[in-house]
Design a protein around this nucleic acid. Sequence first.
DNA 1: GTTAGCACTCAATATGTTTGAGTGCTAAGC
DNA 2: GCTTAGCACTCAAACATATTGAGTGCTAAC
Lengths: 364, 364
Amino acid sequence: MVEFQQLTERQERILAMVVRSYIETGKPVGSKALVEEYGLDFSSATVRNDFAALGELGYVAQLHTSAGRIPTERGYRYFVQKLLGEFHLPLHERQMIRHQFHQARLELSQWMRLSAAILARTSGSASFVTAPQSRANRFKHLQLIATQGRLVLMVLVLFGGEVKQQMLTLAEPLSQHRLSTVADRLNAIFHEKDSDEIAARLSAGQFDTLESEVINLVLDSLRRADHRSISDIYRDGLVNILEDEGTRHAIRLLEERTLLASVLTEQEAQGGEGVQVVIGGDGRWEELKDCTMILSRYGVTESFSGTLAVVGPTRMPYDRNVAAVRYVADLMSSFVYDYFLQETADLPENTLYQIEVDNSDSIE
Amino acid sequence: MVEFQQLTERQERILAMVVRSYIETGKPVGSKALVEEYGLDFSSATVRNDFAALGELGYVAQLHTSAGRIPTERGYRYFVQKLLGEFHLPLHERQMIRHQFHQARLELSQWMRLSAAILARTSGSASFVTAPQSRANRFKHLQLIATQGRLVLMVLVLFGGEVKQQMLTLAEPLSQHRLSTVADRLNAIFHEKDSDEIAARLSAGQFDTLESEVINLVLDSLRRADHRSISDIYRDGLVNILEDEGTRHAIRLLEERTLLASVLTEQEAQGGEGVQVVIGGDGRWEELKDCTMILSRYGVTESFSGTLAVVGPTRMPYDRNVAAVRYVADLMSSFVYDYFLQETADLPENTLYQIEVDNSDSIE
DNA sequence: GTTAGCACTCAATATGTTTGAGTGCTAAGC
DNA sequence: GCTTAGCACTCAAACATATTGAGTGCTAAC
């Protein structure tokens, strides 16, 4: 977290006004206009002096010498970190959001899609939601379903509720009965095991060709799941950021999963708790140059969590959008916890579950 | 299909040259420039006369009286319908595409994602692929998996290889054993049944509360699947159409599934076989005003098929893009057929399987 | 039917002018 | 010593006015 030089109280007020006014109108704000608009008890000349000071410190800038001031990225950061009050979405909006969630089927993908839609709509920006992923995935249940001839559909259910499916081709056709027997045997052996344990037993124990093949597929899936590549992403509100030249190229980030993955990984590595605001890509990501990304992890930290975010122009309503991200993340966290994760409390390894639910906000 | 007035051979040549040149350069083409560029054996004045004729018939237009000609939508349509030769992607590109498909895991979602990526890359436009859907879905296999407490994960496999999953909350906790028994019983009763038959048996036969609840969920899923709402869409290459003002608003179409669904339904209703080219939205869809959508169904007609398409500016390389869409659609059709559908040949109702595979193209 | 010739058109570009919001600076005021 | 009124100065944006040149339509000759 960057340290900022101390500003006088008046300078802070002025900075906040510049930010708010610029966010609202999109036009550079001049000293005189500012005094008039907010009915200030000091003159425009005073404002000009403070402008000069703020400009010196890099919080505001002007497009050309005779233009009004606009906030710099640094200015936005100061604003977000120090001047942003506690803000909550209006009650009726929160109720509507909850309502929509309760309407939805009990399906993670539905919730994710819904979250993305809600974030996009309430923020007027783009949004994305990545599927929650476990750090250490565990085998729960395997099912082999005979399809035509030598083709078999394997359905693998992990602890955490994730379901993986994959086809495999056998050397020779087998009956559903035989397949079920194989599946049952493996289910008994590998229940609650993670990929390492399964790999160990595979090399130790004796399995026939079919069994080994299936186990290898299972291992594949588990490892892929462990590997934290982003498989499912739900996006929404791309239209919202189309018109703005500066924001448009952020779509590249949203579209290329590898790019998004690297950004999220890095951000996660250095980022703290709760809702985070990345302004102008923090100089690290070209794609986010004129954009702000407000993101939050959701789910259960360290064991089963995903990311959810709003992406829009630097010039966005921060209070509202931060509140929206926090609210939706909290809701998702509690849903994920309630419906997918309580079971894992049985596992010995994971003792601490840190649920990031801000009760003050999520109860009404 | 619209009837076009007959053009002289030279007029057709000129129209084709205007279209090709404009597609390449993006600039209105003048009579003199055309003669020089293509080394024509008639003069610019002759071209001007034909320009006038073509303009009269609405195939070309000019932005202002003293500007060169650009093709109208009508001009593009004539070009696509009559002047577009047989074109195939270069061998190495086809090989690369095949290679990528064979690299991918045997998973429908993988293939769809890959198709979208390939279409986007080879066309330089946006693309989308909708999941293939059955007209009449049939129950294949049901699995109930105990989760924490009263929560149960239901996994439903349909003929055609689709897998639906859904959570349900029981009135009281049940053991995995009990759940498996229930699942097995339902599997025996409902194997190969469609939603109507299941509904009939539900109202006729006697089922306990749990069974009824599960059956209702199954019915829900089946009906939703029957209902042809687009559930899964894979998009790619949105970045490609960002820069162009005219094309940009097509993103709205790609993003709003309901919108896309209505367009596809209508197009399907009136559209013919094979690859279809919709230019400028055919005056029916505002969102496609300055865009061209090249689309094709893939899969097995009338029983399990989806749509795949390229969306880009009207000014796009038609030959290449049509070839790309056809090639990918053919590949997908054969994959879907091989891996998901041969089993359904057992079903008595569906006798005719029309596979839209153009062998001349897909064998190398 | 085709072509050379020519006057005409008009977007694009460059150049000049005006306007006004906004600035920095200075000197006076609290 | 901070605040303020006053004033000359700046510069993008808006508007007006030439200049240019690719391209046209038309006509008369081939």
